[in-house]
Write a protein that binds this DNA or RNA. Structure first.
Length: 499
DNA sequence: GACTCGGTCACT
DNA sequence: TAGTGACCG
């Protein structure tokens, strides 16, 4: 069933079963619509397709209709999309212009592979849909890397970012320092770090230990005696029920009893105890397992019990040398070889623009600069690593891929669980400009609050508009936090291996 | 009675 | 240098 990951076969079988009933309901539901255009269907499953058909109906009002006269390439008649003689099949349906066909992919296959095949067959209107629950699998495709606007609010363009603080009042000394950092960054633009963060490793570890907990809402608690114990980790299944470690606007944390009330079926796992205290060694060693895998691709720096930074600069450069990303062919080859694209994914929607040329342009992007290409390689490597981690440890993890640790960390949790987020060139400005100060590492506490309350700043953009004198007057720029802020923001945050 | 508590960093 | 506080997860 195509080149999917280990989940594909299983999910496809499930999807097929659901497909039969789904088709039934589609015909009933859309049967009274007037047919103005033939909708050719290639699919071997129809998971939640009805929703999408309805959506399409709204988008392409009157032009997209489910048609009884479908050719089903399904079951024993299955032919892979890329192997179908589309010219002949279209003619059989009286369609002469393939550019007027809308292709709808819901097959959880490599989007790049499909895009290439579709373009080759003359199709120009393509929608990719994917609808598995997040966290079950992962997915990655080029637009993530090459389309700066695709990932909202993330960008990396140091000179432009500096423009944010164009106030001439910045102390010349500080300015010089900043410039030197930027200069440094310019040369090291080749440097790339990324952060991978193990998601809720405590519950994941417990779920791996006890198969009965897998897929079940689970929390790890300590000090079971009072109100069910304090929550130290919450699985994503449990989060779906509204269980969380901290309850917003209420000073107390959620405890075991409260979790049980919100989610009666929840599993409370007692954290291991040694000498009367919580012993997290089990979870630490789980992290070590992951780091051991990541370390094969670059220097690792453990940031916390469940987070690690990985410097992929060399690995990315090497990949780029071996397979320059100038041609889509190379990208396709590498991407396919990397075995990341075939994995079913969290919901990703992409649509080629009306003109086929734009579509191809999106792919080629030969103007994409070297840094972005490195990021692209980094993203591919990370996807590979995450697959490997999943296979070898059963843990899923999220990752941020960026040119410095601060940005990587910042976005690593933007899409989760089990997803990765790339910080392409040209979006950092928007991100930082709109980033609430408290989201910035080290500004999550009192200092961040003071900045908001005293100076009225809401975003990093606001903050950067303040002069050095003002900030110094209020807080003193020489505090460690402040120095770290600048360093992490502007520099590559040189890796310090602690493994 | 109870908002986890231990690691890390910066400062003194 | 040991002690303290902020921050984090």
């Amino acid at each position: 069933m195509g080149g999917g990951g280990p989940h594909s076969v299983e999910l496809s079988a499930q999807s097929r079963r659901q497909g039969a009933s789904e088709v039934q309901s589609l015909e009933t539901h859309h049967g009274d619509r007037s047919v103005t255009h033939r909708f050719l269907l290639y699919s071997y499953h129809f998971l939640r397709l009805s929703d999408w058909i309805a959506t399409l109906g709204a988008i392409y009002e009157g032009t997209c209709i489910f048609d009884r006269n479908c050719t089903y390439l399904d079951g024993k008649d299955f032919v892979d999309f890329g192997s179908i003689d589309w010219g002949r099949l279209l003619r059989n349906h009286g369609i002469s212009d393939s550019e007027k066909v809308l292709i709808f992919f819901d097959d959880h296959q490599s989007e790049l592979k499909r895009l290439k095949q579709a373009l080759k067959a003359g199709f120009r209107h393509i929608i990719f849909e994917d609808n598995y629950d997040t966290g079950t699998c992962d997915h990655y495709f080029l637009r993530h890397i090459y389309d700066p606007s695709y990932i909202r609010g993330i960008y990396m363009d140091l000179p432009n970012t500096l423009d944010i603080c164009k106030q001439p009042k910045i102390l010349s000394e500080k300015k010089a320092k900043l410039s030197s950092i930027v200069q440094d960054t310019g040369t090291f633009a080749l440097a790339l770090s990324l952060l991978a963060s193990l998601i809720i490793c405590f519950t994941a570890v417990e779920q791996r230990r006890n198969s009965a907990l897998r897929g079940q809402p689970t929390v790890v608690v300590q000090y079971n005696g009072w109100k069910g114990g304090g929550l130290i980790a919450v699985s994503y299944e449990a989060r779906g029920f509204g269980v969380k470690r901290r309850v917003p606007f209420i000073s107390s944390s959620m405890r075991g009893d409260e979790a049980k009330r919100v989610c009666p079926g929840i599993n409370l796992v007692q954290v291991p105890v040694a000498r009367g205290k919580a012993n997290l060694n089990l979870y630490r060693s789980a992290g070590v397992e992951v780091v051991a895998i990541l370390a094969s691709k670059g220097k690792c720096e453990r940031a916390s019990i469940d987070e690690v930074y990985l410097d992929l600069t060399d690995a990315a450069k090497e990949m780029l040398l071996q397979a320059p990303l100038d041609s889509p062919e190379g990208i396709f080859m590498e991407a396919t070889k990397s075995n990341i694209l075939g994995l079913p994914a969290a919901m990703i929607y992409s649509e080629c623009q009306r003109e086929g040329k734009e579509c191809e342009g999106m792919l080629c992007q030969s103007e994409a600069d070297y840094q972005d290409k490195l990021l692209a390689c980094g993203a591919i490597i990370v996807a590979q690593l995450r697959v490997k981690v999943l296979e070898e440890t059963q843990f899923t993890c999220s990752a941020g891929i960026a040119h410095n640790k601060m940005l990587a960390k910042l976005v690593s949790g933007m899409y989760k669980p089990a997803q990765q987020t790339v910080v392409p060139s040209s979006s950092v400005q928007d991100l930082l400009a709109s980033l609430p100060v408290k989201k910035m590492k080290q500004l999550g506490g009192k200092l961040g609050s003071s900045l908001q309350d005293d100076l009225g700043v809401e975003t990093i953009g606001d903050l950067l508009s303040f002069t050095e004198e003002k900030l110094q007057e209020q807080y003193g720029v020489n505090t460690g936090v402040w120095k770290r802020f600048w360093t992490d923001t502007w520099s590559k945050s040189a890796m310090i291996s602690t493994v």
